[in-house]
Design a binder for these strands. Structure first.
Lengths: 198, 198
DNA sequence: CGTGCGATGTATCGGTCCGATACATCGCGG
DNA sequence: CCGCGATGTATCGGACCGATACATCGCACG
């Protein structure tokens, strides 16, 4: 893909956890990845030579393609777990690429995330219990809302963990939007990749 | 207060919305505030002169005090609303200081935030509706979880808005932790400030 | 009785990311 | 035919984080 397209795809995929990636972050990152040998850059070729003659002055789009080393590095990255994997953004990114990993990794990350959220929850309970009279009503309401979000996420994580343990892919627990959608992607075997526009 | 204390206070007050402020951010900011004339710095005086004789080698704590211009600037800042006031962090900070503002400002900010979250919600619904078959089950689950959080926050904001409109301070909607706490801070008149340790 | 560790405290540095901005082309509708 | 919104690449200044360095204090445990 080229940069603009990449940004759109990532925005759609990660829209639930963060705002759009800025160009000031995207382009330097692409150059870093290229320097490391994980992607290659190439100016877009005008189709099969003369197919679109009028567009010779076409602005140079740069098309990025992942390399074999890049795929390997990517597999390493999404399989690795650690403190930064469990914070909001790190977890969200890992989760968005869960379909590219194995079940053991998914369970490890889900449980690490749960522990992290439980810690945050305890911190908030502490504040609400011990420092309650020192804080004003609005601040307390904020903490209560945050605490509620923590409890909710723990429950969500536990459902996901149970689903993983039972070998099922994530089902639809909430009475959400669409009713159907019975089938979901089975996790592809690690080496495989989907067809992409080059 | 001095820096370390300030960080602890802010961590307790803002714990629900963000991690602790880093020193790499805190100290430069304090210097900026000082340069702008909004706070003053002063080396801690050893109590009433000779009271603690053995501690002459005491490491220099720096005590920061807000100035009159600083208080004025602070009042301006928390009363101002705009796009950056409605994103996650900006809204959280404003909300944590709601007790220092007037009701009109609170309503303006709550409604701006609601509009922002409603936009995010629509974006997520779009993705879940239109791009559903292009995304894998985990990504969809992530969006669904984000959508749920949006809907929840909108409901929370609407309760708060209704409470403001009816003139009441925020009550305790959820069957939360402590039962009591009937009284809460009435918003202080704008010029007033609480007693603080100098 | 000493000693080491965790809490208290101030401070800097490298690196990453964001927001704003600049610039150029393409397709479409008024 | 022309202007505007979408597409597209790119840079710059500034803010912030994470790690780190360094120093002191109180207390618990050997």
């Amino acid at each position: 893909m080229h940069g603009y397209e990449l940004r759109k795809e990532l925005t759609a995929k990660l829209g639930a956890i963060r705002a759009a990636i800025s160009y000031g972050s995207l382009y330097p990152t692409l150059r870093r990845l290229q320097a490391a040998g994980w992607i290659t850059e190439a100016a877009e070729t005008p189709a099969t030579a003369e197919e679109v003659p009028a567009l010779t002055s076409r602005r140079g789009r740069v098309v990025y393609t992942i390399t074999a080393e890049g795929k390997e590095r990517f597999a390493q990255l999404i399989a690795q777990a650690g403190p930064e994997t469990y914070d909001d953004t790190g977890f969200g990114v890992h989760f968005a690429f869960f379909a590219r990993t194995d079940q053991a990794t998914r369970l490890r990350i889900l449980e690490g995330r749960r522990r992290k959220i439980e810690e945050r929850r305890e911190g908030l309970r502490d504040v609400l219990g011990r420092a309650a009279e020192r804080l004003d009503a609005y601040t307390l309401e904020l903490q209560r809302h945050g605490l509620d979000a923590c409890e909710r996420e723990v429950r969500w994580l536990e459902e996901l963990i149970a689903n993983e343990r039972s070998g099922r892919a994530p089902t639809v627990p909430q009475p959400g939007t669409a009713g159907g959608r019975g089938e979901n992607d089975s996790p592809p075997t690690p080496g495989e990749s989907r067809k992409e526009r080059p």
